[in-house]
Design a protein around this nucleic acid. Structure first.
Lengths: 183, 183
DNA sequence: CCAAGGTGAGACATTGACGTCTCATATGCG
DNA sequence: CGCATATGAGACGTCAATGTCTCACCTTGG
């Protein structure tokens, strides 16, 4: 009877990933529930988006944990990270563009923690001599987000195969981040 | 007396780049005209966005021309391209996300031509042995768009300096695209 | 000077999405 | 069975943005 809140969230994530302007009504239909019920669980669209944000942050955190960013060569950790984050890439892209609209408003502090962990990974790679130092960790982090979004878009539009997702992104990013043996 | 249509378009581009959900009223105010006049020049929001799209396409085309993609090493052409496209990056990012909403609808054919020209550049680099061949031209093109958006966002958010824009993007992209002399 | 056309300000109806509410129904539990 | 709770369907009212319209200005050119 009781609606599975998590299922609703994931349906909404899947839908909004494809159509970021989807109506509450469409979200409800996608989850297989009525608009009234949807509204009983999430006070409004804002509440829903914020819940999605929490979900995205939590999944990212889990992905970061699973990728064991502190272990082994930084480049290998980046590869693991891209692979682990792949399932969330679509949701991430949605929240990424959604957050830009908040501008000055209170950004969820969870993102800062995630940014920090990723930046720390790139910094570790730089200190270890693996990564070039003329590209800041902040830029590499932002670039990773952009590439994840582009990769998700490429796959979604059918111009790229899902199986190539990790390879495409990790290779392009690392190829730029890893210091070249020879100029 | 007659409103400068181009000035209106550029004001709108600058505003929508920062706040993609800006109202027609805000767009009008940003251009220093009344909403009525804005509406006399652009039948509606759709028409405005389509005009912005044409502007973006035209500026991109001009940037592609200026970058002389056919001349010299492909990697140098990419550097020139990033530099030439920088002023349009914000508008590009706006249209990039805006276009995703159209989904099946009629995409402006101009984008296809631009995509083709950029893809051709990457393909030329691959044929010349400059670029690695495990990353498709389609992916490299999409990745370039993503990095441009990320770069614009980084600069806009104050986490990066405008003067580093070209270097950040071109270096990261090329580092991944250029085949390494040594594995 | 005068007429014509562009403009600003604002009123107005329309539309689409939202949020609230009610009521009938179905489901689960004691 | 009887009750409590959750759900579905749908009817509202609200609100913001849009698009249309009118009317008074102003400037430009004849």
């Amino acid at each position: 009877m009781a609606v599975d809140r998590d299922h609703v969230l994931r349906s909404a994530a899947a839908l909004l990933t494809r159509k970021s302007t989807a109506t509450m009504d469409e979200v409800a239909k996608a989850a297989g529930i009525s608009r009234a019920t949807l509204h009983r669980h999430f006070a409004g669209r804002d509440a829903l988006v914020r819940a999605l944000e929490s979900l995205g942050i939590e999944e990212c955190r889990a992905a970061l944990d699973a990728a064991r960013l502190d272990e082994g060569p930084a480049s290998e950790a980046v590869r693991r990270l891209v692979g682990a984050v792949e399932p969330v890439a679509g949701l991430l892209a949605f929240l990424y563009t959604e957050n830009q609209l908040f501008e000055g408003e209170g950004q969820n502090a969870g993102w800062a923690r995630i940014d920090d962990r990723i930046s720390a990974l790139f910094r570790r790679g730089q200190l270890a001599g693996e990564f070039r130092i003329d590209l800041t960790p902040a830029w590499l982090t932002e670039a990773l987000y952009g590439l994840l979004a582009s990769g998700a878009w490429l796959v979604h539009s059918g111009k790229g195969a899902p199986k190539d997702f990790q390879h495409m992104i990790a290779e392009l990013l690392l190829g730029g981040a890893v210091r070249r043996e020879e100029s």
